[in-house]
Amino acid sequence: MNLLEVEGLRAGYTEEVDILNGVSVQVGEGEIVAIIGPNGAGKSTLLKAIFGLLRPREGKVTFSGEDITGAAPEVIVRKGMSYVPQVQNVFTSLTVQENLEMGAFVREDDFSDRLEALYRMFPDLERKKGERVGRLSGGQRQMVALARALMLDPKLLLLDEPSAGLSPAMVSVVFEKIREIKGAGVAILIVEQNAKEALRLSDRAYVLAMGRNVLSGPGEELLENEEVGRLYLGGG
């Protein structure tokens, strides 16, 4: 059984227009699955619809065997799914430490072990733990965003374009971190504009266009795929 099953999802922001026209996706435990495709394909919308920030009009979302279609984010996060938005993904007026504490909001236990573990994974953040996140650089903020989402020890992490707006050096750092996170056993569903890196990183990937599934398969296969290469990988 898959960790996350998305079947035939149809969703949109307004009454008239559907962005997603029946998308299906699966994520197994501990896998990294990438979603790539052109702008406007509905990739970010897919994540929002899975996480409950958008109510799907049709379709089903199952997480760990439970039907969570259209449930509220506050409910879903308590089931062990974490979401990192593309923009405004940190609390800028709170300190690094406070951001992480908010990440652990749903935990009932003493999470100091978890905090320490995350500081080991993100040593840069430990150094800056008392600083307001608004003062940090873009790359550091992205790290805070990731760390916040990891505080609750999620089974599945949804990442919306984590490399967006970062320098190339920072992009590699971020992807390295994502590999590290996967190494810790967290399943990841990642939406990316940077298709090449995403495909290299992922176990499996889906190509979305116009709100529909176009292709899917192991990451490496899609990398080799000519059509994918021509359309999405910039002729690389």
């Binding site: 996480f51 920030l53 509220a72 984010p73 506050e74 996060v77 308590r78 979401y83 938005p85 405004q88 993904n89 940190v90 609390f91 800028t92 007026s93 709170l94 406070e98 908010m102 990440g103 909001f105 749903v106 916040r148 609750l152």
Partner: peptide
Amino acid sequence: ATADNPELARVSG
């Protein structure tokens, strides 16, 4: 946190 970023606050549970 809610005053800072209401949607992210929801996302954090």
